[in-house]
């Protein structure tokens, strides 16, 4: 779909690539969410995260979210890129970029996309501490 860019990759995500994809002369604004790896959970120091995915289904679910965002909000283009593998503090696991004629729709669609991704896309992260490791959210 020409208004949607979906990516799941073990390469470093590119903010520039997402921005360039959604850029559009008919748009008055671009909203970008960049997820970054935090150095702590509760009071424990996180050394690294390992992201794994059910790849083919994750791509389908990400595309579903993107389509829904385009249908629900007055937005032009959307990019949803997610990383796989080991990431360190400050690295970027997810980028969502949305362009729209007016800013309100861009903000709303971007929030919808990241909130939905965290609920439905089959991607898991394992946190590694000094003294062990844990699957995030595994025991809700």
């Amino acid at each position: 779909m020409k208004n949607i860019s979906i990516k799941l990759t073990s390469d470093t995500l590119s903010l520039q690539e997402c921005y360039a994809f959604v850029e559009d002369p008919a748009c008055g604004g671009i909203d970008v969410f960049v997820g970054t790896v935090r150095n702590h959970t509760a009071k424990k120091t996180v050394n690294q995260l390992d992201f794994s995915a059910y790849g083919p289904m994750a791509l389908k679910e990400m595309e579903k979210i993107a389509r829904q965002a385009l249908e629900t909000y007055e937005v032009h283009k959307i990019a949803i890129h997610h990383a796989e593998g080991i990431l360190k503090t400050g690295d970027i696991p997810v980028i969502i970029a949305v362009s729209a004629a007016h800013r309100a729709a861009a903000f709303e669609a971007c929030k919808f996309a990241i909130d939905s991704l965290k609920e439905t896309v089959p991607i898991w992260k394992k946190e590694y501490f000094e003294d062990g490791e844990v699957w995030v959210n595994a025991h809700p």
Binding site: M57, L117, V121, I123, W135, V136, A138, P140
Partner: peptide, 10 residues
């Protein structure tokens, strides 16, 4: 069939 524990992407 995929068994999908609570997801934690993002």
């Amino acid at each position: 069939v995929a068994i999908i524990p609570p997801v934690s992407g993002g």
